[in-house]
Simulated scan of single mutants.
Amino acid sequence: MHNKAKVSEFSYGFLHPKYWGIWLMVGFLRLLHCLPWTAKLWLGKKIGRLFMNLSKSRRETAKNNIRHAFPELDESSIHDLTQKHFESLGISLFESMLVWWGDHRRNKDNPFEKSLVSYENIEVLRQAEASKKGVIILVPHFTTTDIIGLFLSFKTSLKPVYRPHDNLLMDYLIAKGRTLDNMTPLSKFNTRAMIKTLKSGENLGFLPDQRFRAKGRIDVPFFGENAPSNPATSKLAQLTGCIVLPTFLTRLDNGHYVVRFEEPVENFPSGDDYEDTLKLHHIYEQAIRANPAQYLWVHNRWDR
């Protein structure tokens, strides 16, 4: 069992001077949240470009990942795609603020955030839920990871799995910010709660696509090169008999969003973790090729 369970309650220890920098940052972000949505989109792009220029290591990681995934691109195109990716990262900062402090916190019936999103193939989600088998809503790591949880919460209840932050105050703030009336985060180390959620016929939000080096890793091709991968989706499906539903969010240029529910993954699990994970990788790749700038390229997916 991981020694950092989710921090669900405020601690007076968070007032210690070592946390003051975090509180100042949160206060500054809270002020920025007061800007109009169009201004946030514009400023987010500027912040993203600034981050790209200041963080050489992240910039080079993103470029190397993009270069590998899209070998057909020349260096100029790689630079342009990298810049768009960092702009998307900058916007994601304001998307997180929207999740933490948005109108939905006060206006339950018709919050501003509902006007930003539309849904495709939602009947697929309804059919999966009607089976009462439990649903893994599979959401790969795009820059829109935070806000897709909010948009999903407008249509259903779910328990998104997240990695506890090493800093206890940040862990508390993130968990609190992502907790809604029908959305309760689960630590990725709480496997028992995940299984219980699915066996109860509920929805689990799952993001298993990043580099995985822990016990049980398997090496499976991703964009043609072996990547250390987590077979947990296959394991959970084997243990619970749940439905696996790939779900993607696209941020359009006009600031609107589209949540798209794909058909449930067929013949899953197959009993072969490698083949199951390879099948998921192919689904991710297709979505990434359709929306490359918004995938999370700043983390190295490959073991190199």
Rank of each mutant, 00 (worst) to 15 (best):
G102N: 01
N254P: 10
K46M: 08
Q294N: 11
P269V: 07
K6I: 15
C34T: 08
I147A: 03
P292R: 10
K40S: 11
A227F: 11
Y172N: 06
T156I: 10
L50W: 15
A175C: 05
T191C: 03
I91F: 00
L81S: 06
N182R: 13
P269D: 06
G13H: 15
M170G: 05
L204R: 04
H33W: 12
H2G: 15
H85V: 00
L296P: 02
G241E: 02
V139G: 01
G149F: 05
F28T: 14
C34K: 11
K196A: 11
N203C: 14
A5K: 13
V117A: 03
L50P: 05
I147T: 04
M170Q: 07
V244T: 12
A39E: 14
G177P: 06
K84Y: 00
F151T: 02
D146Y: 13
R59Y: 03
G271Y: 10
P231E: 06
F248P: 01
P17Q: 09
T277H: 08
I147F: 03
L138M: 06
L239F: 11
E225A: 13
K6S: 13
H33T: 05
A5T: 14
L73T: 03
F94R: 02
I218N: 04
V220F: 09
P36F: 14
L204H: 06
N64M: 11
E263M: 08
E263T: 09
G205T: 04
I78Q: 00
S157A: 15
W20K: 08
L158D: 04
I136N: 08
E202N: 13
P228G: 14
W37I: 10
L249R: 02
E72G: 10
P208T: 03
F151G: 02
S131D: 12
Y295R: 08
L54S: 12
F248T: 03
W37H: 14
K56E: 06
F14Q: 15
R59F: 01
T197R: 07
G201N: 13
A175S: 09
I122M: 13
F151C: 10
T179S: 14
Y284N: 09
G13L: 13
G224P: 13
I288T: 09
R30A: 14
K132E: 12
K114S: 07
N64C: 08
F14E: 15
E285N: 07
L116T: 07
V124I: 15
V265G: 02
Q238N: 11
V117R: 01
L29A: 14
K176E: 01
H68R: 10
Y284A: 04
H282N: 04
F248E: 01
V244Y: 04
E275P: 00
F28P: 07
